[in-house]
Computed example of a mutant assay.
Amino acid sequence: MTSRRRPSDGAVSVLAVAVALVLVMATVALIEVGAAVRGKHAAAAAADLAALAASRAVEAGEDGCAAAREVARRNGAEVVTCRLDAAVATVTAEVRAPRWWSWGWRSRQSARAAPSSYVDPGS
């Protein structure tokens, strides 16, 4: 009994490897997108908290930008810009995602905060 090879022999194996490769690439892409979204949210939260800290520090007679830098650092971010107009603080924070292969995501978000007395004169 002789075995004859048909041209389609092994085609399913090649197709299975191709599908597996596409699934791995899609998974890596989703992980990267997730890291970018997480970085954006982390930067926004750090900027919000840093701006609030800066505004409160200025009201207490302290250095607002130093307070903003410390709060941003505790939240895994870095203050890129800090501007104080009286007790109104405008802060831009940046978060760097862990590096995958040769690139890493960066996300910058800005926030502004003012004391409640600016909004509600009765307080």
Results as ranks from 00 to 15, higher is better:
Thr2His: 06
Thr2Cys: 00
Ser3Gly: 06
Ser3Asn: 06
Arg4Met: 00
Arg4Gly: 02
Arg5Thr: 15
Arg5Lys: 15
Arg6Phe: 03
Arg6Ala: 11
Pro7Asp: 06
Pro7Gly: 02
Ser8Leu: 07
Ser8Ala: 11
Asp9Arg: 02
Asp9Met: 02
Asp9Thr: 06
Ala11Pro: 04
Ala11Lys: 01
Ala11Trp: 03
Val14Phe: 01
Ala16Ser: 14
Val17Asp: 03
Ala18Asp: 04
Leu21Ile: 06
Leu21Gly: 13
Leu23His: 06
Leu23Glu: 05
Val24Thr: 14
Val24Gln: 05
Ala26His: 01
Ala26Trp: 00
Val28Ser: 13
Val28Gly: 14
Ala29Val: 15
Leu30Lys: 01
Ile31Leu: 15
Glu32His: 07
Val33Asp: 03
Gly34Met: 04
Ala35Tyr: 08
Ala36Phe: 11
Ala36Asn: 12
Val37Pro: 00
Val37Tyr: 12
Val37Arg: 11
Arg38Gln: 13
Gly39Met: 01
Lys40Ser: 12
His41Arg: 06
Ala43Asn: 13
Ala45Thr: 15
Ala46Asp: 05
Ala47His: 06
Asp48Pro: 03
Asp48Ser: 01
Asp48Cys: 00
Ala51Asp: 08
Ala51Thr: 07
Ala53Phe: 07
Ser55Pro: 07
Arg56Lys: 07
Glu59Asn: 02
Glu59Ser: 04
Glu59Leu: 10
Gly61Glu: 01
Asp63Met: 00
Asp63Leu: 00
Asp63Ala: 04
Gly64Ala: 02
Gly64Thr: 04
Cys65Ile: 08
Cys65Asn: 09
Cys65Ala: 04
Ala66Asp: 14
Ala66Pro: 05
Arg69Phe: 09
Arg69Val: 03
Val71Asn: 01
Ala72Leu: 05
Ala72Thr: 04
Ala72Asp: 08
Arg73Cys: 02
Arg74Lys: 04
Arg74Glu: 08
Asn75Met: 10
Asn75Ala: 10
Asn75Arg: 10
Gly76Met: 12
Ala77Leu: 06
Glu78Ser: 08
Val79Cys: 10
Val80Asp: 13
Thr81Leu: 06
Cys82Met: 03
Arg83Leu: 10
Asp85Pro: 02
Asp85Gly: 02
Asp85Glu: 15
Asp85Leu: 07
Ala86Glu: 15
Ala86Trp: 04
Ala86Lys: 09
Val88Ala: 05
Val88Tyr: 00
Ala89Lys: 03
Thr90Trp: 00
Val91Asp: 03
Val91Ile: 14
Arg96Ile: 00
Arg99His: 08
Arg99Asn: 02
Ser102Met: 09
Gly104Cys: 00
Gly104Asn: 03
Gly104Tyr: 01
Arg106Tyr: 10
Arg106Gln: 13
Ser107Asp: 05
Arg108Trp: 00
Gln109Tyr: 03
Ser110Arg: 14
Arg112Met: 06
Arg112Tyr: 09
Arg112Lys: 08
Ala114Gly: 10
Ala114Tyr: 04
Ser117Gln: 15
Tyr118Asp: 15
Tyr118Glu: 15
Tyr118Gln: 14
Val119Ile: 13
Val119Trp: 10
Pro121Glu: 08
Pro121Met: 01
Pro121Arg: 11
Pro121Asn: 07
Gly122Cys: 01
Gly122Thr: 05
